[in-house]
Design a protein around this nucleic acid. Sequence first.
RNA 1: CGCGGGAUAGAGCAGUUGGCAGCUCGUCGGGCUCAUAACCCGGAGGUCGAGGGUUCAAGUCCCUCUCCCGCAACCA
Length: 653
Amino acid sequence: MSEKTFYITTPIYYPSDKLHIGHTYCTVATDAMARYKRLCGYDVMFLTGTDEHGQKIEDKAKEAGVTPKEFVDRIVEGERGILDLWKLMNISNDRFIRTTDEYHVRAIQRVFRRMYDKGDIYKGTYKGKYCKPCESFWTESQLVDGKCPDCGREVQDAEEEAYFFRASKYAARVRDLLTTTDFLEPASRVNEMVNNFIDCEGGLQDLCVSRTSFTWGIPVDFDPKHVVYVWLDALFNYMTALGLENDAHNDLDKYWPNAVHFVGKEIVRFHSIYWPAFLMSLDLPLPQKVYGHGWLVMDGGKMSKSKGNVVDPYILAERFGVDALRFFLLRTFPFGSDGNFSNELLINTINVDLANDLGNLVSRSTAMVEKYFGGTLPKLESAENADVELLSMAKALRGRYEAQMEKYQFQNALEEVFKVIQRANKYIDETAPWVLARDEAKRDRLGAVLYNLLETVRICAVLLTPFMPESCEKILDRLGATACERTWESAAVFGALHDGVTVTKGEAIFPRIDAEKELEALQAAQKNAQKPAVELEPYADESVDFDTFCKSDFRAVKVKACDAVKKSDKLLRFTLDDGSGTDRQILSGIHKFYEPEQLVGKTLLAIINLPPRKMMGLESCGMLISAIHYESGEEKLNLIMLDDKIPAGAKMC
RNA sequence: CGCGGGAUAGAGCAGUUGGCAGCUCGUCGGGCUCAUAACCCGGAGGUCGAGGGUUCAAGUCCCUCUCCCGCAACCA
């Protein structure tokens, strides 16, 4: 057994919905890293999983009319669920943890108790204001004029019991960790964390680590009306999966703390501040590194369901192939920063790098061995002038690649490989084997040129294996490479390919894509997979009694003036004539749908007896009524416009 | 002045400790016929967002400003 171990993890994903290309990106990156380390000879543990507790899941399950466990089971294990997706993407994880796994649940309870016994978790009160009719807690800062932001009624001082983690105790050590080591990378994220959460006003706040407002979570065993806050529950997955406080696994000594966590930038805060603090509390060693990668954005905007621009990895993998998609994700975007995803870019990358450069190089090289040598090539070494540059690049490649991989710079590592591939294509032009083939006296030279090509391809294919496992295996099969000609060691040796190797040309490994046709088909497929063209809000199944309904005072109002609230992209401020003789001011978050000047003079419908509410420092007295629906996932909003004949103040009944 | 990121060729991006501005696509011209209409060579195209400063030398360091994007806030 190898003594070098390496532990790498993805975040555990939150199964409240289907996973999208962003999750796939992170998992593929982690997989490539894991495969790379295995290639290098490490004993690798690669963990991924799901974070299944929390209010949102509880709510969604309720909506769907199933238990929370049934709900997450469907997303995790169901058809085209998370497990299916990772299988499709050829993810080589060694373990898959679900936070609902029995061993994890019990381990978290023990961890919670240990931190409590140590005094780092203490029972405190979540101080706030309570609104009896709404049964809601509010913090001081949420209140509007000291009143309930929901209903506007008086609130009372109230305290809800909760457990807190003494994060403040570890603030200095965490700051040190972030600022004096490379625990958190890329370094650009360090300032953000320190400025925002540690050196901010009031310093690092103690973290509330239990909830009583919902039940879908791990109960605190010594105080069962509390459930453990999802982040404490989730972060420890990295260690419970190795056997922390449980007997299901027993690899903690072997793999911890030689661990690297790949996480999205949105959860860097939890991984770089609270996770180390939790571990410090338990006197456990810290992982080696947290790497916060960027997001894939669509045309500059964040991927989101409401924009209808969520990219489904299933569709892409099925159309273009798993390896092509894996390759694209890691080749195109710098791992630490955001990347702009588009179908055009995907197709372009596949065509240029995989079809034209790599695939075509394999084709032309193997074709010539078949054509000129009947498929069996003698090992002929050479060092003519024309060979020098190619050979030295190929020999140096593993080192250059390794340097980038060790920095998690996948795009640079791949760039190094493709420089060599491009050089090999050029080498064919320079040496013109088809010319050599016409002259029997140059047969040895021809053989040497082809051998150099096969060797170059072999080295590149070995190094590309972590990114495209299946395709590289095919390429190496075509070259006739034996097992020991596919190793990490062999990638540093030019001339490893054995004498008399048998080569087969075969079908194109990366067929060229007809961009125009494919883009159309893709758009159709993605649209199809999306929601129906027009989607309506669910119909209410609760009835409202007539008296309650009649309490709502709807009136026709005329827009006297309308302007955008400054510093807000959503709010419009309306000055309205409601017939009373006094202007009424209403704020409405509809700037996305209307420009102020469009609305002046219109007759609209408003409910006027809602309690006033302050937004962005301005008071809103009522609400304008609109109709809402969705088209292709995009929210559409239309104000209810009344006939201008209707006088201001007319009551709707 | 809430926090952070960004602005470099038509598009998308890279530029390490300051040292002749680069890559991919596109475009124009040429070469080759082994190969997947692929491959190779060359040209055109940039006041590096604006202004100021430090320096022999600034895309890079410092200051000011403009615009974009996240987060946060808000969306009755």
